[in-house]
Design a protein around this nucleic acid. Structure first.
Length: 549
RNA sequence: GCGCCCGUAGCUCAAUCGGAUAGAGCAACAGCCUUCUAAGCUGUAGGUUAGUGGUUCGAUUCCACUCGGGCGUACCA
């Protein structure tokens, strides 16, 4: 059973085309079906009659009637067709067809919802990519969680995914970092130092200096910032970053160091390609990229007059390596503070002939943190931030993951810390987990009553609550596919919330114990199927599915 | 100034390729546990979708302008 809805849509399209032999105006039309928001309007709906109405200068309802009377419907699949509103044609599925879905869930279990549409394709998802200058903040959390979840989604639709972290341990930022540690070290040795305001103010810098002092004493008194101080800071901070991510179940496969682009000559190679193709020129001692000829606003510097490249050149070279590594899909996820940088990179890649269709740049908006009614401005430099670790400590990994996943990435998100701490029990993640734990508990209880899942009598599931739940379960695979193709993690969270709500209603009105055995076992099948789907959905989100709460 | 993003219920947010009566959660109010987990369920109340115009059978969605907010706009990354 693969893309049920799509199969059905195809089947309906064929039906429509068949009837077009009898109705001329249906020829050469592109039929679209959609799932109505309101359940009363059926399972699939077409607006075809309204589209035709203008063209034929006829009442849409009468066109709809004519179309319906010319359809050859299979009553095993479609139980009812109706005209509604201004001229929608609504199709209702047969119960048989709906309950087939439960059987599929039991066949596939932990794999239910996966599809093979992109089987054999490879994707690279680059996310987090924070330079190792300090702990990850809450702002990075959104990037980390969404990136990892998008990678999960892609895996569910068949991609083989590499999670990648790009960093730079060479630039000015890192020199300042090393020097910050050096000064703190000298300070600990009792020297009078003047710690510059634009250096890294965080307490972690002192900790690193302390460690160095403890291990090696004062031997590094004359050492430069770029030696042990920078190296030590980098490795300590990176270790912490990985630990922070691990707490949220995030693990990158590839850590790509910008420096390797210099070492293996990639930067020079790209630079000479630009030169040879006349895409760059020299002016005032610097090398400029002709972005204005590539469709962008203005030319930009790629090599400064000092001979040092700007960030654009390594960024372009880096993305070329992604193309050379033969990915079918290349995803960059970063915060809106980078929104000015990617058009240059894209334009350059396009000018070099790379297929931009393969590359998707996803930009998430900032997370504003408010505490005690005030907005907290965050800066790593000024050590004025709330770390991702602190957030995980406060509300737990499940809540952190769920919270960041439940909003579309283009929305500006507000995180009220007081609320998150105080009302953490009211977070919707518990609503889902509770539904899962509840089903587990049912399963434990009914086992003692000698009831077991039975798929023979699913036609007994006829109540509103049962049918609604059944339909919702059937949509999962399509939801995953849609969410993955559109990189929308929040669709999964809202789907699961609706699914859990349907289940809780079913639980309230359709008891299993004390019911006639055949019906009880059919209901148990429905409950267990729901458990599987909730667990699978939570797995995609990276949230745990507890057996007990 | 220019570019990207956003503006929907008191608060935080949904709403499929433009679809039918704009939906949830929280907060508020009124109910439901002597049978499977009350972290649940049922009901009430809450809206000029920032504003104005346009496109059309039909607009929260597309277009233009206005207002308000965020992030950018370097020979920093």
């Amino acid at each position: 059973m693969f893309h049920r809805e799509k199969l059905l849509k195809n089947r309906l399209t064929v039906l429509m085309q068949e009837s077009s032999e009898r109705l001329d105006y249906l020829k050469d039309l592109n039929f679209t079906f959609e799932k109505p928001k309101n359940e009363d309007h059926g399972d699939l709906s077409s607006n075809i009659a309204m589209v035709l109405s203008k063209q034929l200068k006829r009442n849409p309802r009468s066109i709809a009637e004519e179309i319906i009377s010319n359809l050859n419907l299979d009553s095993n699949i479609i139980s009812k067709v109706a005209i509604a509103g201004p001229g929608f044609i609504n199709f209702h599925f047969a119960h048989n067809y709906l309950s087939e879905g439960i059987k599929t869930i039991f066949e596939k279990r932990g794999d239910y919802g996966k599809s093979k549409k992109f089987f054999g394709k490879r994707a690279n998802v680059e996310f987090v990519s924070a330079n190792p200058t300090g702990p990850l903040t809450v702002g990075h959390g959104r990037n980390a969680v969404c990136g990892d979840t998008i990678a999960n989604l892609l895996e569910w639709i068949g991609y083989e995914v590499d999670r990648e972290y790009y960093f730079n341990n060479a630039g000015r930022q890192m020199r300042v970092l090393g020097d910050s540690v050096r000064l703190r070290y000298l300070e600990l040795l009792g020297e009078q130092i003047d710690f510059p305001q634009d250096y890294y103010q965080g307490e972690y810098i002192r900790e690193i200096a302390k460690d160095i002092l403890k291990e090696s004493g004062s031997v590094y008194k004359e050492e430069s910032a770029e030696g042990i101080f920078k190296d030590r800071a980098e490795s300590e901070i990176f270790k912490d970053i990985e630990k922070t991510l691990e707490r949220l179940n995030i693990k990158h496969k590839i850590f790509f160091n910008e420096n390797t682009l210099y070492e293996d000559g990639k930067i020079d190679e790209v630079l000479s390609i630009f030169k040879n193709r006349g895409l760059s020129y020299e002016k005032e001692g610097a090398t400029w990229l002709k972005l204005s000829e590539m469709g962008n606003q203005q030319d930009k510097v790629i090599v400064k007059s000092t001979g040092e490249p700007t960030y654009r050149l390594p960024d372009i070279a880096y993305h070329i390596t992604k193309y050379e590594r033969n990915y079918d899909l290349i995803i960059d996820l970063f915060g809106s503070d980078h929104n000015a940088t990617y058009p240059d990179v894209m334009a350059a890649l396009g000018a070099l002939g790379y297929d931009l269709e393969k590359m998707k740049v996803l930009i998430h908006q900032f997370v504003t943190i408010s505490q005690d009614g005030e907005i907290v401005k965050m800066s790593t430099r000024k050590a004025n931030y709330i770390t991702l670790d602190e957030l995980s400590d406060e509300v737990g990994a499940d809540v952190v993951r769920y919270f960041f996943n439940m909003r579309g990435i283009s929305t500006h998100m507000n995180f009220d810390l007081n609320l998150a701490k105080k009302h953490s029990d009211e977070n919707p993640v518990f609503y889902l987990q509770y539904a899962h734990a509840r089903i587990c508990s049912i399963v434990r209880t009914v086992k003692e009553e000698n009831l077991s899942v039975n798929l023979e009598n699913l036609d007994l599931l006829q109540s509103n609550e049962e049918v609604t739940l059944l339909k919702k379960l059937n949509h999962f695979e399509d939801e995953v596919l849609y969410s993955a193709e559109n990189f929308e993690t929040n669709r999964i969270t809202s789907y699961l919330e609706e699914l859990a709500a349907h289940f809780h209603k079913f639980y309230t009105f359709s008891r299993i114990l004390g019911t006639e055995k055949r019906l009880a076992e059919a209901r148990l099948a429905l409950a267990e199927a729901t458990k599987i789907v909730i667990a699978n959905g939570l797995t995609i989100l990276g949230v745990s599915a507890p057996e007990k709460m």
